[in-house]
Amino acid sequence: MGRLPSPDDLLILLTVARLGRFNAVAETLGTTHTTISRRIVALDKQLGGRTLERSPHGWELTELGASAVAAAEAIEETLGSLSGLIGQDKNALSGLVRISTSDGFGAEFVAPALVRLQRRNPLLNVEMLSATRKVSQNRSGVDLEIVVGRTDVSNAQPIFLANYFLRLYAGAGYAAERGLPETLDGVGQHGFVSYVESALQVAELGHRASQLPMPKSSFQATSIFAQVEAVRRGAGIGLLPNFMVAGRPGFVPVLPDDFQRQLSIWAVARPESLRSGRVQAVIAALKDEVQERQDVLAA
């Protein structure tokens, strides 16, 4: 009988299948790119064939690799059950889950959902990366992407989370000093706060896609938190997520009956990630958070 493959190497292969990049796997496992590559080569030798092949989408599984990953998933599930027993809770989740999300929705919805999930599962580790971008066509180095707008990707599954609104707001001081426009054409006579168009991947979030008139001046920032603060401090009128400012002191709605944009939020994951209990639990927690706070999103 030939030598059985190393369980550690199988679990490394499983992580590569989920994240797609050796560097991301090395960061997750606290090791180096060279070590990951060496362990995969060793696993290929033990199995008598290649488990991975390069593609435009990062590392993809071969047929042999898919069979090896199935075995690795069984090992992971068994180890997860053992960790739960050690922690006196056989249903507890453990290990690391990495999530990419836009910063506004991430702070307001993703972080609360993950904190609540982690409090129920103290062996679960979370890494949340802020990025306002389209869904990655290549494997992105995360288990789950939370993205705004269209999800045109062929090798991953989009999961609808919620709709929300972008609306126009001004700071209370700005409104008192400069006044507010009475028509949409009048918005062009004011300063405008928005994303940096040249750095924006999600066009629906920018001023250009809004079809509003060109502003008198602009304040552009890649961070939605910087935009919210700029509006509050009087930089101009801003196109802001309603869930971040509606009803909060210091902000005045601008032409609320004349302009709004509705956008969607999606969770996107590759098939290998969706088979992870950790990822499934995160998606469930996000759905619960959104459901409980529909009034904030629909306002």
Rank of each mutant, 00 (worst) to 15 (best):
K90P: 15
V135I: 13
R120Q: 15
A68Q: 02
R133W: 02
A70Y: 14
L79G: 03
R116N: 12
A113G: 07
A113T: 00
T62D: 03
A74E: 15
L82R: 10
Q137F: 00
V110C: 00
L114G: 00
L117Q: 04
A107C: 13
K134W: 10
V153F: 01
G80Y: 05
R116G: 08
V135G: 13
V69A: 08
T78K: 04
E77Y: 03
L61F: 03
I86P: 01
A131G: 06
G87V: 02
T132R: 09
G141M: 07
T101N: 06
L129K: 08
V135L: 01
I86F: 11
I75Y: 07
V142W: 02
V115S: 10
G84E: 08
A92S: 14
A113N: 03
L61R: 05
L144D: 09
V135Y: 00
E63K: 13
V135F: 03
V153K: 07
L117G: 02
E145I: 06
V147H: 05
G84K: 01
V97Y: 02
N138M: 12
V110E: 08
S81R: 15
K90C: 14
L129R: 10
F109N: 04
K90L: 15
S94M: 09
A66W: 09
R133H: 07
V148F: 09
N121R: 00
N138L: 14
N125K: 09
G104L: 02
L61D: 14
S81H: 07
V126M: 08
L117E: 11
S81W: 08
E108W: 07
A107W: 11
T132P: 05
L64I: 07
P122V: 06
A131M: 15
A92I: 03
A74Y: 06
N155A: 02
L124K: 00
T101K: 01
G95Y: 02
A111L: 11
D152R: 06
E108S: 05
I146W: 01
S81V: 15
S100V: 05
F109G: 10
V135H: 08
N155L: 06
G141R: 07
D152T: 10
T62M: 01
A92H: 04
L85S: 14
A111G: 12
L144Y: 05
L85C: 12
L96I: 14
A72C: 00
I75L: 03
E77W: 07
R133S: 13
G65N: 02
L79Q: 10
F105G: 00
G104W: 01
G84D: 08
A113C: 04
R119F: 05
V126F: 05
R119S: 04
G106V: 09
E127H: 02
N138T: 15
A70I: 09
A71W: 02
L129G: 07
S67V: 12
S136E: 04
R150H: 13
E73V: 08
V115Y: 14
R116Y: 03
A113R: 05
R98Q: 03
N121W: 06
P112T: 08
V135D: 09
E145K: 00
S130N: 15
G65E: 08
T132D: 11
E76G: 09
D89T: 03
A111H: 13
Q118H: 12
N125E: 14
G95M: 12
N155Q: 10
